[in-house]
Nucleic acid binder design. Structure first.
Lengths: 235, 235
DNA sequence: CCGGTACTGTGCAATATTGAACAGTCAGGA
DNA sequence: TCCTGACTGTTCAATATTGCACAGTACCGG
């Protein structure tokens, strides 16, 4: 009995997608948001372009239509921590809804990205007016929360080696199925280090180790083999 | 300009309470929840008693009326990580709303605790039927999310010494104002270690260091001096 | 072709952290 | 009163991690 619990936990964050009970998160929020109207604008960003910066006034929720976005926070000594990598269908900047006056982090496009910028007041209006949208948004927030809690637990428990393995697998999930899966090429070892809270040299060390063991392969693009799971699962 | 951003960030999680724009989280959810009806029951737990355990089927959202609750996750090797310490007015178990079939963690009362257990279906019904409740719940989830993200960033950036200082200050916020504030007495060094992801001996080491420096004082009850902030803020 | 801008690949000494052990305290229950 | 359980105080050697530094590569724009 204990062992089944254990198995469940050690695979945390690696479960297959499950259906949400307040509605699937894969719905198209665009339907509710992009009919022409006040308080909604489209933004386009090139790779590496900043969507908003830490300290900017927080006044809009942003919905990703296409591309990818990195959410990060910068330290007093310039060290960067990556809080999340987001993709189409994800929201960010939603903290302003809770009254957060300024952005606590920086959002950067990692590939060419199209977003919908929804002003706070408009977002609240839609949340109030559209039941279905409100449900989906709650479901989305709940899942984000679960994901961040898993990341936190991962940090509390695991060595940087395991954290790297888990992060790679998580990123690989976005790739197409197959035995060796593609992972977005725009993740540098530096960024990986910032995601798992260690140094680039450590990431480099483990990446080479994983490669030697045949768990991953890379040459600009990183390919993750399912066997990498053994690193996460092992004692 | 950079320096003001920096200051803001280094004090993350230590800001004063701010008013939420979807409504204050300090509202009394009880008003919406405890009128007699199906799907709602009251639960009472003694200190250290388990409210639900990791692996249990997840089918209710729980609202704390009185007391305090520790949310934790256990490792494959029995190591424990504390995800959150919750208090009256907080919800937990809400992940079931997103379709999570089993509890990913264990909820334990840390003091005698009274909770309202709301079945998932009932919770969804209230969320749908009561606009105000739905708003407040969204606001609550947004703030929980902000808090967990801050904890994650803290882990990514800071040494265990700083994390301990921050955690103590955060817990101290629950005490009454004054120059030396009380912190809930039921937090052992062991629990602190599980919250910041280190070992008890490390916590013990820093606690003694902080005491020698006059930042804290303890003898069963921990008293935190505002000067402890210098540990968190210092480069 | 050149310089600049990312990156990766290494190595290494200085530190920080772990894990485990053992003694001591304190409170409550039998 | 004695026991037990839940804590704190303190070591210490084995490891893991950090923070550099420097070389090498690949791509881009002028």
């Amino acid at each position: 009995m204990v062992s089944t619990q254990v198995r469940r936990v050690s695979a945390q964050g690696l479960r297959s997608p499950k259906k949400a009970h307040l509605g699937s998160t894969a719905f198209n929020a665009k339907l509710f948001l992009d009919s022409t109207g006040l308080g909604r604008t489209v933004g386009r960003y090139a790779a590496r372009e900043t969507i908003f910066a830490q300290g900017d006034p927080a006044k809009s929720v942003i919905y990703i239509q296409e591309g990818g976005v990195k959410l990060s926070v910068v330290n007093e000594v310039g060290k960067e921590a990556v809080v999340a990598i987001l993709r189409p269908g994800d929201f960010f900047g939603e903290a302003c809804l809770a009254g957060q006056p300024v952005c606590m982090g920086t959002a950067t496009a990692i590939t060419p990205t199209t977003v919908l910028v929804i002003e706070k007041s408009e977002m609240i209006r839609v949340l109030h007016g559209e039941h279905e949208f409100s449900d989906r948004f709650i479901a989305y927030m709940l899942e984000r929360n679960i994901r961040v809690e898993e990341d936190l637990v991962d940090q509390l428990f695991n060595s940087s080696e395991k954290r790297l393995a888990r992060t790679l697998l998580l990123l690989a999930r976005y790739g197409l199925p197959g035995h060796t899966q593609k992972i977005l090429p725009n993740v540098s070892q530096e960024t990986l280090a910032e995601m798992i809270g260690t140094t680039r040299s450590r990431v480099n060390f483990f990446m080479n180790k994983f490669r030697k063991l045949g768990f991953i392969d890379y040459d600009g693009q990183i390919r993750v083999n399912d066997s990498l799971l053994s690193v996460v699962l092992h004692d």
